[in-house]
Design a protein around this nucleic acid. Structure first.
Lengths: 127, 127
DNA sequence: CAGTATCCACTAGGATACTG
DNA sequence: CAGTATCCTAGTGGATACTG
């Protein structure tokens, strides 16, 4: 259902309104940080080890990456695997649950791309 | 295209990877704040005047709402209309551009709802 | 009603150095 | 390599009072 085109002409109830607000709020609370989605993208592109991820997410410091990964593990987006061979290898991998973010991620990517184009054209128009 | 299931088996290039990262970053930068999407939802549900919006977005202070609305106007999501009758009436309305957020918004709502359910079940399972 | 003005608290996140 | 430890800053946003 679209937020913008209310085909049924029915005015949404207070309860419905708050449910929407809360759902979006929850989602943003979890994924709205600066880094989490980027880390997911990096992982989905095959980076598994700490320093790989750090390289794949430009600008992130080890401290922040460490915190993010811990949170993501707690929330079930990521699994941390320790392979106790010598040398020990630690790898992160996305869980199935993180795949539920697929729609969110692609819609954000599409919109971000579109928005960037728009800004670019505006800038040109004003120059 | 899905981030998670790369059917073509092709490993994405560095350039593609960065493009995705940037697109998501841009999108989050614009809409990732605590308030903007909630204000859009409030507006989409028929609230047009300053205090209406403030009531419809629980917890927002007038200072923050004022700042957000100005930003949103600058970025083309909202139009501020001043009707110079007596008494003067000021109304905010969503622009066509804000409707481009439809997919983002609905996917966030859906995911937020699902995630909340999941958390609830987990809490029950642990009690 | 539609905001401003002030003041303040918190915390996400940056820089850098260090460790087992 | 996979992180911790410290320290620090900037910016977001809360509380409250006030104004044309």
């Amino acid at each position: 259902m679209s937020i913008f085109n209310n085909n049924s002409q029915r005015k949404p109830s207070m309860a419905e309104c708050n449910a929407r607000l809360n759902a979006v709020g929850d989602a943003l609370y979890v994924i709205g940080g600066k880094w989490m989605l980027r880390i997911i993208i990096a992982l989905s592109e095959g980076n598994r080890r700490f320093n790989d991820i750090q390289r794949a997410v430009p600008g992130i410091s080890p401290r922040v990456l460490s915190n993010e990964l811990k949170n993501m593990e707690l929330n079930g987006f990521v699994r941390r695997n320790v392979y106790t061979d010598i040398p020990v290898v630690i790898e992160y991998e996305l869980t199935a649950y993180s795949a539920t973010l697929d729609n969110v991620l692609t819609s954000l990517m599409d919109w971000g791309q579109m928005h960037r184009e728009r800004i670019r054209h505006e800038a040109l128009a004003h120059s």
